[in-house]
Design a protein around this nucleic acid. Structure first.
Lengths: 98, 98
DNA sequence: CATCTATTTGGCTATTTGGCAAAATAGAAG
DNA sequence: CTTCTATTTTGCCAAATAGCCAAATAGATG
């Protein structure tokens, strides 16, 4: 694979990988509607708060979300709402072996 | 997480996960242009052919590609070209820690 | 049938991931 | 400074992943 092309796909894959988890998709779709604090996301997701925090870290490292502090709370928001646009497309796919 | 919602995101995440690898993105983008046999993809990718074959299996299981046999060759094709549409969107993201 | 070619599968290893619980941190408030 | 609350980090473990090589398979062809 050519080096510049490779670099491009490595970067893209990193972002896509960050999206590739049911909990993180739920979080992203929730943030699409409004900024949300971690504890509210924990209630939505139902996992341990440390687990939710790690998912948010993954999304943040990918550049998909950002946080804003207000008092004790950190409000997370989507940085790029368009990343969810292809979900509809995916819904049309017929799985072969799932 | 509600069960029906969960199921939906599990399915979506499986497809997205299948896309979340540089080599598989390269393969998908190549197939976007035309049907391609495995050996041609191996030349493009540069990995062992068994590795390429496994990547194709992942994509096939996700429902992203399908194959057609012609003599000794298996020609793979994209089943859903729209899955690559959001690549442009991703390119605009600023990574935080990558 | 035997052989050839394209592709897949199995076995192995090293690495990454997701989850929880416990400990650490950051900022607000007394 | 101490305490409180929201969040992150660390440590641990089980499970999944990517890659190579070797072996197996599926058709085509002699």
């Amino acid at each position: 694979m050519k080096q510049d092309l490779k670099k491009k796909y490595v970067r893209q894959a990193a972002v896509i990988k960050a999206m590739a988890h049911p909990t993180r998709l739920l979080i992203l779709n929730s943030l699409k509607k409004k900024e949300t604090c971690v504890c509210e996301l924990r209630d939505l997701v139902g996992d341990d708060i440390s687990t939710v925090s790690k998912h948010l870290l993954v999304l943040k490292n990918a550049g998909l979300v950002a946080a804003r502090r207000e008092g004790n709370w950190l409000h997370y928001r989507l940085t790029c709402p368009c990343v969810l646009e292809f979900a509809e497309c995916i819904a049309t796919l017929e799985p072969q072996n799932v």
